[in-house]
Simulated assay, not measured.
Amino acid sequence: MTLLTSRDNPLIKTVISLQKRKGREKHRLFLAEGPHLLEEALKSAFTVRSVIVQEGASCSGLWWTLLKEQSVPVYQVLPRLYQTLTETQHPQDVIGIVEQPVEPGGFPLVDKVFCGLLLNELQDPGNLGTIMRTAWAAGFKNLFTTPGTVDPYSGKVVRASQGGIFNIKLYTHPLEEMLAWANKQGVRVWVADPKGTKFHFEADLTGPTLFLLGNEAHGFDWSKLEKGRVVEGLKIPLPGGAESLNVSVAAAILLYEALRQQMVVVG
């Protein structure tokens, strides 16, 4: 295992650059910090380019076995240098350098139980990561984002996803392009809105469904819809008097209601 000791080492420079969106976009790479995220990356279709471990770290467990099976290069780094590579206050001893997947062209196939989330200009990385984690847990693999949404490969998003980012497919298209596709495919679009016309448990979510959630601060801007575009507002009960829910909480409630209805239909 090669020991890296200089901040001027090309790999070290690359890892530091991946802490910024500009660096991630330039190299088409991102970081997966900690044994759990690295293990999920190695079990997925993603490619782990290389791995850095802090000198003295314990190299054992499933992630280490998978590294050896896949012949991923591993480098040791001095503790003082390792601190510059991690983005967390209490860093774990291993960091994976992972290739960003090729962006899927077009849209996914739609079947009768299709369900997805369309996130319009979300800004908080914790929210996006948590939504990824929830979608993965609920078994819904398609996540759509519009331009202007927080970078899905930022460290905070990846950590909040707890591996979800390696187990879902991301599509990024302009809002109207996605709505036009949904309409053509017979996918019913529901906007999460406290002023919606139906409660989430009143809506029929058993067919192809797409939930549209807007920006954390302002919600969804209905004026962005083209004239004649049909989408429906869906609300979640707020009997306590709060104006709204956190967007990741709302996403979880909607996804699991769709899952519940699908399970009832299947029996």
Score class of each variant (00 low, 15 high):
L4N: 09
T5K: 01
S6K: 02
R7C: 07
R7H: 12
S17R: 10
S17H: 07
L18W: 09
K20Q: 15
R24S: 09
R24H: 09
R28S: 15
L29H: 11
H36S: 12
L37H: 10
L37I: 14
E40C: 11
L42M: 08
R49W: 06
R49A: 13
S50K: 03
I52H: 07
V53G: 02
E55I: 03
E55D: 14
G56C: 07
A57I: 12
C59Q: 12
Q70N: 11
V72T: 14
Q76G: 14
Q76D: 13
V77T: 11
P79T: 14
R80N: 12
Q83R: 10
T84L: 08
E87Q: 14
P91R: 04
V94T: 05
I95N: 00
I97M: 08
V98F: 00
V98Q: 00
E99M: 09
P101Q: 10
E103C: 10
G105S: 12
D111W: 00
G116P: 01
L119K: 02
L122C: 04
Q123I: 02
P125R: 07
G126H: 10
N127D: 06
N127E: 07
G129E: 11
T130L: 00
M132R: 04
K141N: 14
N142C: 08
L143D: 09
F144G: 06
T149Q: 01
P152W: 07
G155Q: 06
V157K: 00
V158H: 00
A160M: 03
S161N: 05
S161W: 03
I168R: 00
K169D: 13
Y171C: 08
T172I: 03
E177Y: 04
A182S: 13
A182F: 07
N183E: 15
N183P: 04
Q185G: 10
R188A: 14
V189C: 05
V189A: 01
K198P: 01
F199D: 10
A203E: 10
L205M: 11
G207P: 02
P208V: 15
T209L: 02
L210A: 11
F211G: 06
F211W: 11
L213S: 12
G214Y: 05
N215P: 05
A217C: 02
A217P: 07
S223I: 13
K224H: 14
G228M: 01
L234P: 04
K235Y: 08
K235P: 09
P237E: 10
P237M: 06
G241T: 14
E243P: 02
E243R: 14
A251E: 09
A251H: 03
A251N: 08
A251G: 13
A252N: 09
I253V: 15
E257Y: 06
A258K: 02
Q261W: 04
G267K: 10
G267N: 12
